[in-house]
Design a protein around this nucleic acid. Sequence first.
DNA 1: CGGGTGCTTGACTAGCATCAAATGTAGTGG
DNA 2: CCACTACATTTGATGCTAGTCAAGCACCCG
Lengths: 215, 215
Amino acid sequence: MFQSHIVGKQKSPAFPGHYTVVSAASKDQTIRLKADQTIYSEGEHALAIYQVEAGAVRIYRLMSNGHRHILSFCSKGEWFGLEKGQVRSDFAEAVCETRIRPFPANQDAVVPMDLLNIALTNLAKAQEKQLVMTEQSALKRVAAFVQEMAERHPGEPEFDMMMSRSDIADYLGLTIETVARSFTKLRERRIVRLNGKLQRSVRLLDRDALVALTN
Amino acid sequence: MFQSHIVGKQKSPAFPGHYTVVSAASKDQTIRLKADQTIYSEGEHALAIYQVEAGAVRIYRLMSNGHRHILSFCSKGEWFGLEKGQVRSDFAEAVCETRIRPFPANQDAVVPMDLLNIALTNLAKAQEKQLVMTEQSALKRVAAFVQEMAERHPGEPEFDMMMSRSDIADYLGLTIETVARSFTKLRERRIVRLNGKLQRSVRLLDRDALVALTN
DNA sequence: CGGGTGCTTGACTAGCATCAAATGTAGTGG
DNA sequence: CCACTACATTTGATGCTAGTCAAGCACCCG
């Protein structure tokens, strides 16, 4: 019931026929970003949408009380930056070393894209995140996060989450202490093993137990 | 910072040019629904999208633990039923006596619709809801809900929420007891007055105090 | 070595879930 | 008209969970 909101293969939308040419993707427009580098900020004019080639991007908003809420993480293949208005309503930053490819808004076109499909995919992601964030204990939320990250690395026994505890906390609506305690519980229960200086490398020891937690 | 996710006037999207003809809206295809009547269910084939003419619709999912999570409420003018795949991933029911207008999926067209705009509007709604549901106390969440409902009735000093305490709880990720206690606090602080048998009629006494809570 | 950063752990507390019961209103039947 | 049921809401008492504040640890780098 709790599938990840990461989209594997794109299914055709219920209401097709909306393929539109948007952008000239010239030879290599790829943008290379260092960790925490800003891609765009709230209030800016929305000039392009982006596809992640490698690494990860965090999309977030700043609330009036100063708190940061991360709406989503985007990994390889995922799209971000598609806005309802012409003005950015959120911030986008690279989580780690990242490569993205921009597709300008109103341009002579070379690559056709299905903007509707992108929007619906992001909507599905946002809805799945809602489900994770409600009526779940902290441990379950963190388990769902690990599960989500694991699905972005299919077949790999060990992978790097790249996000800091602070990122994860702001994504799940928890504090960094609670996130750390939840990881400790997952370690104690032999569900995951954490490696690396920053304990961001995850080895899944008991996938079934992890999935059981997210139910 | 906390605007309602209800869309007043539609702004043009950042990436325009995606108006598509979808449906033949014949003379009067309006569907009349009684309270709690089902519009569609999870697993069904997605045959149409809908616009609310009057009343309100709840969109929800059932989790494996049996809990219901309401993803959104749709009021007059709002669209629902646009899916990423051909299969319904959620349920739609009338909250009260409601009129909706269906627009079949693949049809000879009379009315042009901007499906992308609908998808982006619903995405914005889902993101605003994420913000409400995290890092907010129960009282703040309920205040945000009342604020959201109030914005659907501009200029009216008193309005009917129509949703039960159970609906509100499943929407905000709280229990009905906590929702009731929050309404009691809003009443004690002279922010709202509740009327009617079911205490669903709201008179806003102190809009500023309400807005202050949602910050 | 000393300071900085990010993660973890501990002690305490506030707030929400839970379980339970009371209230209020409408409808039904005697 | 009153007793009885049904339902939604409210209120009360209690325990647990996650937030808060504080300290400690591991690693890195100047």
